[in-house]
Nucleic acid binder design. Structure first.
Lengths: 137, 137
DNA sequence: GTTTATGCAAATTCTTTGCAATACT
DNA sequence: AGTATTGCAAAGAATTTGCATAAAC
C-alpha cells in the first residue's frame, strides 16, 4: 500500500504527526507547493520551523524534489522515481498565469537535449507557462 | 548603437547612474543574476532598495525577464526579443551545480511541446542542470 | 516645472540556528 | 535506552513601503 505512513517508512523517515500532515498535503494537492502553501494548510497545528525542517528532510530522503519557478519561491513536488542519490523529475511543469498554480504534466515526457561540448547533464526541468484547463474553461 | 544608455531610452527608462550600472552588469555577465549578485557588483555605490526597484522597473519595461530556478532565488536575464507586452525567452538555461551559475545556451532552441486539451501556452522555459564546460575542464 | 528616481529608516516576511523537552523505534 | 523530531526564542536574510530629497526630462 502506498499511504502516507508507509511512504515515510520506505524513505527512512520517522512517522510523526507533522510529517503525515505535510505529506498528505502534497498527496491531495495536484501542484507544486511552497512552504507558505503548506503553512496555510497545516500551520495551525505545527510550528513554522517544523515545516521547514520537514521539507528539508523530505528532500534529503528523496520524497520531494524542488520545482523551478520564476517567482523567487521555493516549491516542492512529490517525487515519482527519485531516490536519495539522485532526483529524477522527468516531466513537464506547467504554471498557470491566471490562478498561479504549478502542476505536473506527468503524461508529457521532457524532450532530449544535446548539450555543447564540455557540458555534463544531471537533470532537466521543463517549465511551461500559460493558462490551465480550469482557468480556460 | 546598442549601448546601455540607448537601451534605457528605447525602453522608456530614465537614464540614471544606478540603472546604467545595473544594466551594465547584465551585459557583462553571461548568466542569470539575482539581486544579491548585483548588489555584490555595484552595491557600494547604490542603495539596496534602489537595486530592487531598478530590477522591477526593468522587468516592467521589458528589459529583463525572470529566469526559473529551483533554489528560491529570483534571477533575471536580459530579454532578447521581449517587449513589454509579452516576454519571450526561447532558449535553454543551464545551471552548473559546481559553480552555481546559470547561463543561457542561446544556440539551442527549446523543443516544441504539445499541451493537453484545454491548456494554452504563452511561454516555455527549459532548465538543464549539470556541470559546465569551465568546471569540467 | 513636473514627473520620476533615490536614499534612508523602518516594517514585513522568509529562513536558519541553538537548545531543552518530547516523541519515535 | 538511544536517537531523531519538535517547539520556542531569537538571530539573520531577503524584500517591501513611506516619505523627504534630489535628479531627469
Amino acid at each position: 500500500m502506498t499511504n502516507t505512513v508507509s511512504l515515510l517508512k520506505e524513505h527512512n523517515l520517522r512517522n510523526t504527526e507533522a510529517r503525515v500532515a505535510v505529506l498528505n498535503t502534497f498527496m491531495v494537492q495536484p501542484h507544486a507547493l511552497s512552504h507558505g502553501d503548506i503553512e496555510r494548510e497545516v500551520g495551525e497545528q505545527f510550528d513554522r520551523v517544523t515545516i521547514y525542517r520537514t521539507l528539508t528532510s523530505f528532500m534529503e530522503k528523496g520524497l520531494l524534489h524542488k520545482v523551478p519557478v520564476d517567482d523567487g519561491s521555493t516549491r516542492y513536488a512529490l517525487c515519482d522515481h527519485c531516490d536519495h542519490h539522485q532526483h529524477e523529475d522527468n516531466h513537464i511543469h506547467f504554471k498557470c498565469t491566471v490562478c498561479g498554480t504549478t502542476q505536473c504534466l506527468d503524461e508529457l515526457p521532457i524532450p532530449q537535449v544535446k548539450l555543447p561540448q564540455g557540458f555534463t547533464l544531471t537533470e532537466t526541468n521543463f517549465l511551461v507557462q500559460g493558462v490551465c484547463k480550469g482557468c480556460n474553461g
